[in-house]
Design a protein around this nucleic acid. Structure first.
Lengths: 343, 343
DNA sequence: TTGAAAGCGCTAACAG
DNA sequence: CTGTTAGCGCTTTCAA
């Protein structure tokens, strides 16, 4: 709060009523041209700014949207937040960001917190440990605007923005197959996440297309989404000590992808000579890795923008919405040395 | 806004007045034990949550803090924001983040925007192109709480949290000197930024300590903070075509550091054989770079936390504050292969 | 111990 | 065309 002029101040200074000032400021029709001019000029002079809090109280709208993500310091999410901010800012909304650190409990608290803050809508990407989505279902049923992005709660029938995960993982896997690899392992995030199963599905589809067996021992889940270094290390350990050691690895989670590299090296394997590697990540330095990383990139910024546009449209819609969009956006495969052809 | 119970609802249901309910809820002394119990139980039952907007209007406090940074999708800032969120969240404040994209004009708009949102205080890290700090000075003079972190407006006498930039750059430079390099170039961000001059100073101090000449042609500024790829490329180009080509490079900006690597490689130089490299960055994957990067890391998370603690303390202080803290936090030098000893 | 009423800044229905 | 009034949810005098 900072010593700003109120409508009352203007009214007093100009010898008018607050309603007249309000009307002038809001360009109402029922106002005299001169009065209007007078008020507008004075308001301009004293740099009048309406108090958004008073407006919120009046309108029963906070003009804020709540964001639930696992982590801000994550390539994908920091880019998505960039997109969210860009749209929200221009639409007069501000953004309250909360982090789950992949904890379902924390996520529930965050949603509560955001609700008690009276956010007008929610932009959510569920945590890796989230299984209970009834709070979202409940809110949505009550007509509260929610848009999921990236990590969606499938069962809740609302707007969703996701990357084409199946195709993305398919492309990644197919690329490895095309490069001569047949024993390809798959490291992914929690089984709770739809993105995990979709990416797994894309992987399987590619194997099947080329008549390669889908081997369960080649598939590893990191239930904490890679937040815990040990789980990634364990998964890698198990994979690389298999009798039929995989020739290539794909990782389908941003954090896991970047975490894998040093672990693999520490285990003494050379990429791609001993084991090829490719993964989902939005890191903008994957080119500088040793070796340069083959990555599957999601349009994080655009996804954030799309989700926010949809959410604001929903919030501002006059009539209830019963048709929900399920946007699928394309990913980008960037081939580099880490997935180099088998000699 | 979401169909929640109000004090009025409770009052009506219990046949009390709103003031009584309010008193019960706030644990006032002037209230009957039974009434209090009654209200509290009912409130609990219906999951009553005070409307923060009404409270804000009443208290003339928004319980929100505004953050001004250049970019969320930046290693340092995303980590700092993580720290900011963690403290703000636990203190009942929410955080409104704005990005300048290194534009001074955008920064001014953002501050205006945040002010019109009635944030209770500002956490700012100025943009690379900011020269006019009078708005901050003005606000601060009026008693508005501002804490600068990382990129501070030196002239404004308020709380500041910075890394020990001089020592950090000194350490980085000394390390290179210790490794046998004598011709060390310095690439940094805009001259406007105090962090740039401090880091430059640390560099010079190290050279002087070891009786090495400070050569102006070895010092390059990127006025756009590395937002523009070309400016980094240009700087590198000029340095690497010098008659006496530098043997080592230090970069003192997060974004510039990560940008340099691919450019240097594209120019055909091998790191560290043709030119050694070390730089400020908070990237958590610098270990995976080719070659693994020697970096100077700032405690971004803690800096965000400290800044937020200070800001909230200032906001909530009963009496005006005239003593401002200037916290200097230590950096961490992590030595890796990119700065390897000269053969 | 409790209630009535005013007020935070703003808008809007209702009078005039 | 303009003023009066009430009300959004809450706290806090002031009376009782």
């Amino acid at each position: 709060m900072f010593g700003s002029y109120t409508i009352k101040d203007i009214a007093k200074a100009l010898g008018l009523s607050t309603s007249t000032v309000s009307r002038a400021l809001n360009g109402s029709y029922e106002i005299g041209a001169e009065t209007k001019k007078l008020v507008l000029e004075y308001a301009e002079k004293v740099n009048y700014r309406p108090n958004p809090i008073a407006l919120s109280l009046k309108e029963q709208k906070s003009h804020s949207i709540g964001v639930v993500v696992c982590e801000v310091a994550n390539n994908y999410f920091s880019q998505a937040i960039n997109g969210i901010e860009s749209i929200a800012y221009n639409s007069g909304y501000h953004v309250i960001i909360t982090q789950t650190h992949e904890s379902a409990a924390r996520e529930a608290t965050n949603v509560q917190h955001l609700l008690s803050r009276h956010v007008d809508g929610l932009l959510v990407s569920v945590s890796a440990s989230t299984t209970d989505i009834t709070p979202y279902q409940y809110l949505h049923d009550k007509g509260f605007p929610i848009v999921f992005f990236d990590r969606v709660a499938q069962a809740v029938n609302t707007h969703k923005i996701t990357a084409n995960n199946i195709k993305g993982a398919f492309d990644l896997t197919e690329h490895l197959i095309a490069n001569g690899f047949t024993r390809i392992a798959h490291i992914t995030s929690s089984r709770n996440l739809l993105i995990s199963s979709e990416r797994l599905e894309g992987y399987k589809e590619a194997l099947q297309k080329y008549n390669l067996p889908v081997q369960p021992e080649y598939i590893k889940h990191c239930e904490n989404g890679g937040m815990i270094q040990d789980e990634v290390e364990m998964a890698l350990q198990e994979l690389m000590t298999l009798p039929e050691r995989p020739q290539a690895l794909i990782s389908t989670s941003d954090r896991i992808t970047t975490t894998c590299i040093p672990i693999i090296k520490r285990m003494g394997f050379k990429i791609p000579d001993d084991v090829a590697f490719a993964g989902f990540t939005n890191s903008d330095v994957s080119e500088s890795f040793d070796p340069p990383l083959t990555v599957l990139r999601q349009p994080a910024f655009q996804m954030g923008q799309m989700a926010t546009e949809l959410l604001i449209k929903t919030i501002e819609s006059k009539r209830p919405i019963y048709e929900y969009q399920n946007e699928l956006v394309d990913t980008e495969l960037i081939v580099r040395k880490s997935s180099l052809k088998l000699a």
